[in-house]
Protein backbone atom coordinates (compact mmCIF):
# COMPACT_ATOMS: atom_id res chain seq x y z
CA UNK A 1 0.00 0.00 0.00
CA UNK A 2 1.43 3.41 -0.92
CA UNK A 3 2.17 5.82 1.90
CA UNK A 4 0.65 8.74 0.04
CA UNK A 5 -1.83 8.70 -2.80
CA UNK A 6 -2.88 11.93 -4.48
CA UNK A 7 -5.75 11.35 -6.86
CA UNK A 8 -6.77 14.01 -9.44
CA UNK A 9 -6.55 16.88 -6.98
CA UNK A 10 -7.63 20.36 -8.04
CA UNK A 11 -7.45 23.65 -6.20
CA UNK A 12 -8.39 27.17 -7.20
CA UNK A 13 -8.26 30.49 -5.38
CA UNK A 14 -10.56 33.49 -5.65
CA UNK A 15 -13.92 33.84 -7.39
CA UNK A 16 -15.04 34.96 -10.83
CA UNK A 17 -12.59 34.28 -12.33
CA UNK A 18 -11.00 31.73 -9.97
CA UNK A 19 -7.29 31.11 -10.44
CA UNK A 20 -6.72 27.39 -10.79
CA UNK A 21 -3.34 26.48 -9.30
CA UNK A 22 -3.66 22.69 -9.26
CA UNK A 23 -5.46 20.81 -11.97
CA UNK A 24 -5.94 17.05 -11.77
CA UNK A 25 -2.71 16.39 -9.90
CA UNK A 26 -1.99 12.72 -9.15
CA UNK A 27 1.01 11.24 -7.39
CA UNK A 28 1.84 8.02 -5.60
CA UNK A 29 4.60 7.92 -2.99
CA UNK A 30 5.85 4.82 -1.19
CA UNK A 31 7.73 4.59 2.10
CA UNK A 32 11.37 5.56 1.74
CA UNK A 33 10.86 7.37 -1.59
CA UNK A 34 12.20 10.89 -1.96
CA UNK A 35 10.72 13.04 -4.72
CA UNK A 36 11.17 16.63 -5.76
CA UNK A 37 8.43 18.87 -7.14
CA UNK A 38 9.65 21.71 -9.29
CA UNK A 39 7.83 24.68 -10.68
CA UNK A 40 7.99 28.42 -11.10
CA UNK A 41 6.95 30.80 -8.35
CA UNK A 42 3.17 30.72 -7.95
CA UNK A 43 2.83 27.43 -9.79
CA UNK A 44 1.14 25.78 -6.80
CA UNK A 45 4.05 23.84 -5.23
CA UNK A 46 3.46 25.12 -1.70
CA UNK A 47 -0.30 24.75 -2.14
CA UNK A 48 0.22 21.07 -2.98
CA UNK A 49 2.41 20.66 0.10
CA UNK A 50 -0.26 22.30 2.29
CA UNK A 51 -2.90 19.95 0.86
CA UNK A 52 -0.72 16.90 1.56
CA UNK A 53 -0.15 18.12 5.14
CA UNK A 54 -3.87 18.61 5.66
CA UNK A 55 -3.44 22.32 6.28
CA UNK A 56 -5.79 23.06 3.40
CA UNK A 57 -8.47 21.04 1.57
CA UNK A 58 -8.64 20.37 -2.18
CA UNK A 59 -11.64 21.52 -4.23
CA UNK A 60 -11.71 18.19 -6.07
CA UNK A 61 -9.93 14.88 -5.82
CA UNK A 62 -8.65 12.85 -2.89
CA UNK A 63 -5.52 12.69 -0.77
CA UNK A 64 -5.02 9.43 1.09
CA UNK A 65 -2.21 9.25 3.63
CA UNK A 66 -1.39 5.88 5.14
CA UNK A 67 -4.83 4.58 4.18
CA UNK A 68 -6.72 7.58 5.63
CA UNK A 69 -8.62 9.96 3.37
CA UNK A 70 -7.68 13.39 4.74
CA UNK A 71 -11.06 14.80 3.70
CA UNK A 72 -12.76 12.40 6.12
CA UNK A 73 -10.76 13.72 9.09
CA UNK A 74 -11.52 16.79 11.18
CA UNK A 75 -8.98 19.58 11.70
CA UNK A 76 -7.89 18.22 15.09
CA UNK A 77 -7.46 14.67 13.68
CA UNK A 78 -5.46 15.95 10.72
CA UNK A 79 -3.31 17.99 13.13
CA UNK A 80 -2.67 14.92 15.29
CA UNK A 81 -1.83 12.85 12.17
CA UNK A 82 0.58 15.54 10.99
CA UNK A 83 2.14 15.75 14.46
CA UNK A 84 2.80 12.00 14.63
CA UNK A 85 3.56 11.04 11.03
CA UNK A 86 4.90 14.11 9.24
CA UNK A 87 7.80 16.50 9.54
CA UNK A 88 8.10 19.99 8.08
CA UNK A 89 11.10 21.97 6.82
CA UNK A 90 10.31 25.55 5.85
CA UNK A 91 12.16 27.97 3.60
CA UNK A 92 12.39 30.57 6.42
CA UNK A 93 13.41 27.91 9.00
CA UNK A 94 10.67 29.03 11.43
CA UNK A 95 12.51 27.98 14.56
CA UNK A 96 10.85 29.34 17.67
CA UNK A 97 13.10 32.26 18.67
CA UNK A 98 12.40 31.91 22.39
CA UNK A 99 13.53 28.27 22.56
CA UNK A 100 17.09 27.01 22.55
CA UNK A 101 18.27 24.81 19.66
CA UNK A 102 17.77 21.65 21.76
CA UNK A 103 14.27 22.67 22.84
CA UNK A 104 13.27 23.51 19.25
CA UNK A 105 14.29 19.99 18.26
CA UNK A 106 12.54 18.53 21.33
CA UNK A 107 9.21 20.19 20.49
CA UNK A 108 7.81 17.42 18.20
CA UNK A 109 8.79 14.84 20.82
CA UNK A 110 7.02 16.79 23.55
CA UNK A 111 3.93 17.10 21.34
CA UNK A 112 3.99 13.34 20.72
CA UNK A 113 4.30 12.50 24.40
CA UNK A 114 7.96 11.43 24.39
CA UNK A 115 9.18 12.81 27.70
CA UNK A 116 12.11 12.81 30.07
CA UNK A 117 15.44 11.09 29.49
CA UNK A 118 14.26 9.32 26.32
CA UNK A 119 13.44 12.67 24.72
CA UNK A 120 16.70 14.27 25.84
CA UNK A 121 18.73 11.35 24.48
CA UNK A 122 16.97 11.46 21.14
CA UNK A 123 17.47 15.22 20.83
CA UNK A 124 21.14 14.82 21.65
CA UNK A 125 21.59 12.07 19.02
CA UNK A 126 19.70 14.09 16.41
CA UNK A 127 21.81 17.20 17.01
CA UNK A 128 24.97 15.13 16.78
CA UNK A 129 23.80 13.70 13.45
CA UNK A 130 23.35 17.20 12.02
CA UNK A 131 26.71 18.20 13.55
CA UNK A 132 25.24 20.74 15.95
CA UNK A 133 25.75 18.89 19.21
CA UNK A 134 27.85 21.73 20.59
CA UNK A 135 25.14 24.31 19.84
CA UNK A 136 22.36 22.63 21.81
CA UNK A 137 21.95 25.50 24.24
CA UNK A 138 22.40 28.31 21.73
CA UNK A 139 19.54 30.55 20.74
CA UNK A 140 18.44 30.31 17.08
CA UNK A 141 19.50 33.93 16.59
CA UNK A 142 23.10 32.90 17.32
CA UNK A 143 23.18 30.47 14.36
CA UNK A 144 23.93 30.99 10.68
CA UNK A 145 21.24 30.33 8.07
CA UNK A 146 22.71 26.94 7.20
CA UNK A 147 22.88 25.95 10.87
CA UNK A 148 19.28 27.05 11.43
CA UNK A 149 18.12 24.92 8.51
CA UNK A 150 20.04 21.92 9.88
CA UNK A 151 18.22 22.43 13.18
CA UNK A 152 14.95 22.55 11.20
CA UNK A 153 15.87 19.25 9.52
CA UNK A 154 16.62 17.74 12.93
CA UNK A 155 13.25 19.01 14.21
CA UNK A 156 11.46 17.53 11.19
CA UNK A 157 13.01 14.09 11.70
CA UNK A 158 13.45 13.72 15.48
CA UNK A 159 10.08 12.02 16.02
CA UNK A 160 10.74 9.55 13.16
CA UNK A 161 7.94 10.60 10.83
CA UNK A 162 6.86 8.59 7.79
CA UNK A 163 6.87 11.63 5.53
CA UNK A 164 8.95 14.82 5.51
CA UNK A 165 7.69 17.84 3.59
CA UNK A 166 10.40 20.34 2.69
CA UNK A 167 9.21 23.65 1.25
CA UNK A 168 12.11 25.39 -0.55
CA UNK A 169 14.51 24.48 2.27
CA UNK A 170 17.47 26.06 0.47
CA UNK A 171 15.70 29.22 -0.67
CA UNK A 172 17.40 31.38 1.98
CA UNK A 173 20.84 29.73 1.92
CA UNK A 174 24.08 30.30 0.06
CA UNK A 175 25.21 27.60 -2.38
CA UNK A 176 27.53 25.76 0.06
CA UNK A 177 24.99 25.73 2.88
CA UNK A 178 22.28 24.64 0.44
CA UNK A 179 24.38 21.67 -0.71
CA UNK A 180 25.08 20.69 2.90
CA UNK A 181 21.43 20.87 3.92
CA UNK A 182 20.21 18.92 0.90
CA UNK A 183 22.78 16.19 1.45
CA UNK A 184 21.86 16.05 5.13
CA UNK A 185 18.15 15.89 4.38
CA UNK A 186 18.60 13.04 1.93
CA UNK A 187 20.93 11.14 4.26
CA UNK A 188 18.59 11.46 7.21
CA UNK A 189 15.56 10.40 5.16
CA UNK A 190 17.35 7.33 3.84
CA UNK A 191 18.68 6.48 7.31
CA UNK A 192 15.16 6.52 8.79
CA UNK A 193 13.52 5.03 5.64
CA UNK A 194 11.20 8.01 5.63
CA UNK A 195 9.53 9.32 2.49
CA UNK A 196 10.22 12.90 1.49
CA UNK A 197 8.78 15.57 -0.79
CA UNK A 198 11.08 18.42 -1.66
CA UNK A 199 9.46 21.46 -3.22
CA UNK A 200 11.94 23.67 -5.04
CA UNK A 201 12.42 25.80 -8.10
CA UNK A 202 16.09 24.81 -8.28
CA UNK A 203 16.99 21.96 -10.59
CA UNK A 204 20.23 21.40 -8.68
CA UNK A 205 18.27 20.92 -5.49
CA UNK A 206 15.70 18.71 -7.20
CA UNK A 207 18.45 16.46 -8.50
CA UNK A 208 19.18 15.29 -4.93
CA UNK A 209 15.80 13.48 -4.94
CA UNK A 210 14.98 10.05 -6.42
CA UNK A 211 12.44 11.41 -8.89
CA UNK A 212 11.53 14.86 -10.13
CA UNK A 213 8.03 16.11 -10.91
CA UNK A 214 7.20 19.41 -12.54
CA UNK A 215 4.14 21.55 -11.95
CA UNK A 216 3.45 23.53 -15.10
CA UNK A 217 1.58 26.82 -15.50
CA UNK A 218 -1.74 25.02 -16.04
CA UNK A 219 -1.50 23.31 -12.64
CA UNK A 220 -0.75 19.85 -14.05
CA UNK A 221 1.93 17.63 -12.54
CA UNK A 222 4.17 15.48 -14.70
CA UNK A 223 7.30 13.45 -14.06
CA UNK A 224 10.51 14.81 -15.54
CA UNK A 225 12.43 12.12 -17.38
CA UNK A 226 15.72 12.67 -15.70
CA UNK A 227 17.00 9.93 -13.45
CA UNK A 228 18.91 11.40 -10.60
CA UNK A 229 19.78 9.45 -7.45
CA UNK A 230 19.18 5.89 -8.55
Amino acid sequence: MPLLQIDRVAKAYGVAPARRVLNGVSLVLRSGEYVAIMGDSGSGKSTLLNLIAGLDAPDHGRIVFDGQDLAQLGDAERTRLRRARMGFVFQAFHLLPHLSVARNVALPLALNGVRGAAAMARVERMLESVELGSRAHSAPSELSGGEMQRVAVARALVHRPSLVLADEPTGNLDADSAREVLALLRAQLKRDSAAGILVTHSLAAARTADRIYVLDGSGALSEREEPVHA
Binding site: L96, H98, L99, R103, L107, L109, A110, L111, G113, G116
Partner: peptide, 20 residues
Amino acid sequence: MSYGSGVLLEAGVVGPMRHQ
Protein backbone atom coordinates in the same frame (compact mmCIF):
# COMPACT_ATOMS: atom_id res chain seq x y z
CA MET B 1 7.91 19.02 35.73
CA SER B 2 9.10 16.63 33.00
CA TYR B 3 11.38 17.71 30.18
CA GLY B 4 8.56 17.41 27.63
CA SER B 5 6.07 19.43 29.67
CA GLY B 6 8.74 22.04 30.25
CA VAL B 7 9.37 22.29 26.50
CA LEU B 8 5.64 22.73 25.78
CA LEU B 9 5.22 25.32 28.54
CA GLU B 10 8.22 27.26 27.31
CA ALA B 11 7.22 26.94 23.65
CA GLY B 12 3.65 28.13 24.09
CA VAL B 13 3.45 30.16 27.28
CA VAL B 14 6.57 31.29 29.12
CA GLY B 15 8.92 31.63 26.15
CA PRO B 16 6.79 34.14 24.21
CA MET B 17 6.22 36.13 27.41
CA ARG B 18 9.94 36.25 28.10
CA HIS B 19 10.75 36.97 24.45
CA GLN B 20 8.46 40.03 24.50
